[in-house]
Structure formats: C-alpha cells, structure tokens
Design a protein around this nucleic acid. Structure first.
Lengths: 305, 305
DNA sequence: AGAACCCCAAGGGAGTCCCTATGCTTTCGC
DNA sequence: GCGAAAGCATAGGGACTCCCTTGGGGTTCT
C-alpha cells in the first residue's frame, strides 16, 4: 500500500543521494529507510534506485516520481495546517493585536462577539500602543491587528483603513468649548497628553504635529502621562486640556471628568483606524474572524470609511 | 503519523455518512474503520465526526479537511500512474550509454527508432568514450550501454558482443593504401590518434598496442587530438595517417578528407562492440528496448557476430 | 416494547516498523 | 597495492499497528 511515509523517505534519499545520510536526517537507522524504499519499489513495481557501491543513483522512474511525491507530501501538510487552523477556532487561543484606544471602546464587545460565535475559544487582545502592536506584527507574534495610522514604517504590511476617529479637544472650561479649536488656539493651550512612552510614534500626536506644522507652530505639551484615563482625570480637575479621539472622550468623560466637555478641531482632524497584517501572508480563519468582527465593531462606533 | 490510509477511510466515511457503510465499501470490518478515524483525529488533534445515534455527522474540521484530503489522495494516485506510465514506456526518460564512435553512426537512427515506437518518451544518449560510459554504468547512472571492448575491468558486468568493427588504416597517400598495413609498417608510420584523454583505455588503442606488442614493436603516435573528426581532417591534409574503426572511416572520410582512403590492417584487427550492463540486474523495459534497437542498428552497419 | 441499526470496547493473530549486529562491496589514503 | 572507511544488504528480535471477531450500550423505527 502506498504511504506518505514511503514518499517522505524516498524524497530524503533522493535529495541526499544516500540511504545512510537520509536515515540520519530522518532520525532512523539505515536499514529502516532501506526497507521503506524497498517496499515503495514493490508497491509501484518499479526500481527507484541503483545502488552500485558508493551511495545510490536515482533511475528514470525516480525522476518521474519526485515531483509527484513532493506535491503529495505538500498537499498532506497543507491539509494538516488547514485543519489545525480551523481547530484553533474551536479550542485554541485567538490572539489579535489592538492598540489601547480601540480596545478601550471596542474590546469588551469584540470579545463577547467572538465567544458568542466560538464558545470554546480563548481570546487574547494584545498591545498597549499602535507602535507596540506594530512590532508584534513584524515579529510574527500576532497575525493581524487593528491600529491607528499614520504609523512607523509599514513596509511589508498590508494596511486596510476601516474607520475614521475624530480628534476632539476636551476641557473643563466651557468657554473654550464654544467654538471649534484652531491650530492657533491649540498652540497656545496648556495640554496634557497621554502615551508618553510612545510620544514619537503615537498616532494622535503625529496628526496634531502635522496640523500645527502646517501653520508654522509647534505643539506645547505641559503634562505628559502614560494613560488616557489619567489625562482625562487631569482635564476634569481643570489642570489642563487635551486632545483625544472622540471615542475616548465619549467613554471616559462621563465617568472621569463629568464637568468637562469636548469640541471639534478646525480643520477637523481624524485618526485613521486600519487593519494591518503582513503583506503576502495567508490569514488563518481565526485571524479573518477577528478582522471581520473588529471591523464591524469599530465601524459601529467610529465613522466608517 | 498522518497516512494516506487514514485519509481514504475519512473520505469514505464522509461520503457515506456512516462507519458501517464505509467499512463495507472498503472491505473492512467496522471497528477497523472506526480505529482509523480515531487515529486520524488523534494525529490532527481535532474531532472530525460527531456520532449522535444514527450515523455520524462531520464537524467543521471535517468539512475543512475533505477537499485537502481529496487533493492529497488524488496526488498520490497521480504519482502512481506517472511512475507506471514510465515503466510502460509511455512517457519519461530513457537513458542509454553509447560511446562516441557508435553514437556517430548509429545514434540518430536509434533515436528515430525509439521515438517511432514510443512517441511520448524522452531519450538521452550519454557518454563520450567507452571508458566514460563504463564508469556511468558502474555508478548506476545508466542501466545499460553499448561500448567497445576490450575494456578496463569488466567484473560484475554482463558483456554481450554484438558486432565487430574492423580497424582500418586511413591515409591521403594512395601509395600507402596499395596493400594491407602490417605491424612493421604501422610502427614506422606517423600517426594521429583521437581520444587523447582516454588514451589508456581507448579500445582502438588497446587493440593496436596488442598487435604491435606481439611483434615486439611499440606504437608511435605523432599527434594527439580529442575527437575523431579532427584526426580525420589532419589525415586529409596529409599531415599524418591514422587508424580508426571502419564505420568512422565510411562516414567521415567523404566529408572531411575526400582525397584520403583506407585499407585493412594485416592481420585484420577488430574492435568488438558489445552491450554491457550490470551482472545480475533485472533490466527495465526501457533498457531492454534500447538494447534491442541499438543491436539491430549496429549490426546493420558493422559485421554481426 | 421489541427489532433493527449503529457505534464503541475488548481481546487476539498477522503483519509492519524500527532497532542492533554483521557481512560484503566499493572507495579513499598512505 | 593494501588497510581503513564508507555504504548498502541481510538477519533476527521487540514493540507497535492493523484488522479481525465478539459482545455491549445507545438511538430510531414499527
């Protein structure tokens, strides 16, 4: 009976040109490989190798078999991969990258969606900052992610924008919320900004920097903190104002700074939220699922593109 | 370990929706099929069928596996077919060894014969020199060959002489062609000999050396060249004479040295052309075909034994 | 409820898979 | 040339697999 094991042995022997070398490579003893080749020759009714002293020489039949054997083995491997990818949706762990802000207002419901569709699965949403997530992506620790762009080098990455998230000016001083905030006013404001560690790559800051740069101004940041919650609390205390994505304002202001409000910038500024994965990679079913659900969730909250 | 047998069982169960029916269809007992499915589930780490009372129901993993399993099985079947087509001489490559001189005057028509009988086949005639061919034979790169003997050690080889090829003296000087050339005249002649690289093993040279040795003389070679064509051209220019198989003289003299002619040696000397293959090996149909056709061709040109 | 059907579990015989040990041939280095 | 080394074949034995038969527990149809 033809078997994959025989084909694997055959290919190894063919490539290495020696039974002994093939056996060593496969982790078997030499007679075992010899026997497999012999049984393959028997099932095919063909001589595959001539063995004149030093090493073995493939016959014409072996030359013919080789590409077919490779295709068969590859096909079997692909079957295994496909099944295990789908099984990951039933029992395994789904790991998806999501930067802090998006997770803040879509994370919980996204996890609820996934568990509703696949009750047995374990879910991990990883990544503090978009830049952090980007790094995990490049190193292959996660397959796909939702991040905010503009972003550090996106070479080799496939980026699919899915939503715009407006940046709004938040303040405890109602006076400052009367009208949209221009670049001039922004440059003179006393701001608290989160994501200190990532300040160079944080998407919100990059957008603001561009906005001010176009009018020849430089951003003034009075207070630097790590997380958006602290920043919003400080705004609630009236110690500074801030600029955050509207989704953050919606979810954090009522709880952490009930006396504060928000207003648009002028011209209106947006973070672009996008799905990112390695270009050219075939995504697993788990990754495709997460992308689909995360996109639906984020578009229910932010403005779809 | 993943096996084709498991995949075959899986597909049958999937199609028939029942272990019992699949077992009957495959000619096995029901528990055997059950065990194969179970082992497949174990190697993939996935449950493939739910068994709620009547029959079995494929899971999502089974749906995923099915097309891959079909492709894999089909690929394996194709591998078998391809190899067997080769053994039936419908396709594939036939490799046959043939030393330069024989190929010179039988090669093209031999290939024509093969292609006429088996249009789908690819033909390779390998080998420059008899000694070269002999080496390929020993290493198993070719199954059988037509070479000129006497030859270097033929241990382990089955040698079947099929024809004699007379060695003739060629010269542009008609005087020297009046009568057969004796060992004495040969020893005094100024000769150009081909096959420099193989001088120690070249069949023609061995025959000449023996002829001269019996009369206590040593061969004198004035010019050494690689190929017979060059040697014949030099003869045509009158720069030297040579000794070549008669087949070579017949085919090359008119074209390369029209003013030259040939005459026998005395005593008459012959190269023996023989079919050689490894003793004890069972020859493939391809090899047997080549032997048959090559023998027929060479005997149509040289003297059959 | 009984019959029919279907899958699972257990136990046993034949064959396979892989090992070690050994012998034979070819090839390489002195 | 002649030993040493490398490489494949063969032989024998242990563990595992494959497939069988028999019997048990569940569901479905009559």
């Amino acid at each position: 009976m033809l078997s994959l094991h025989q084909l694997r042995c055959f290919l190894t022997v063919y490539e290495l040109g020696s039974l002994t070398a093939a056996a060593e490579h496969l982790g078997y003893a030499q007679p075992s490989v010899s026997e497999q080749i012999r049984s393959l020759e028997r099932t095919l009714g063909v001589e595959l190798f001539a063995c004149p002293g030093r090493g073995v020489a493939p016959t014409a039949a072996a030359e013919t078999l080789r590409p077919h054997a490779e295709r068969t083995i590859e096909s079997a491997e692909e079957a295994r991969r496909a099944v295990q990818a789908v099984s990951a949706l039933e029992t395994g762990t789904i790991r998806f990258g999501m930067f802090g802000t998006a997770r803040l207002y879509a994370g919980a419901s996204l996890i609820a969606d996934v568990l509703h569709r696949h009750p047995g699965v374990r879910v991990e949403l990883v990544g503090q900052n978009s830049s952090d997530v980007h790094d995990d992506l490049r190193r292959g620790r996660i397959e796909a992610a939702m991040i905010a762009v503009p972003q550090v080098s996106s070479e080799g990455m496939a980026v699919t924008p899915v939503a715009h998230d407006e940046l709004v000016y938040i303040s405890a001083d109602k006076e400052r919320l009367r009208s949209p905030v221009t670049a001039q006013r922004l440059a003179k404001a006393s701001l608290v900004m989160p994501e200190t560690t990532w300040r160079a790559e944080d998407s919100t800051r990059i957008v603001l920097r561009q906005m001010l740069h176009e009018t020849g101004l430089n951003p003034q940041t009075r207070i630097e903190v790590e997380d958006a919650e602290t920043a919003v609390e400080l705004v609630g205390m009236g110690l500074a104002d801030s600029v955050v994505p509207r989704g953050v304002a919606d979810s954090l202001l009522p709880r952490l700074a009930p006396n504060a409000g928000f207003v648009s910038l002028r011209p209106k500024q947006v973070d672009t939220i996008a799905i990112v994965h390695r270009a050219g990679a075939t995504l697993s079913p788990a990754a495709r699922l997460m992308i689909e659900l995360a996109t639906a969730r984020i578009q229910a909250i932010a403005e779809p593109i």
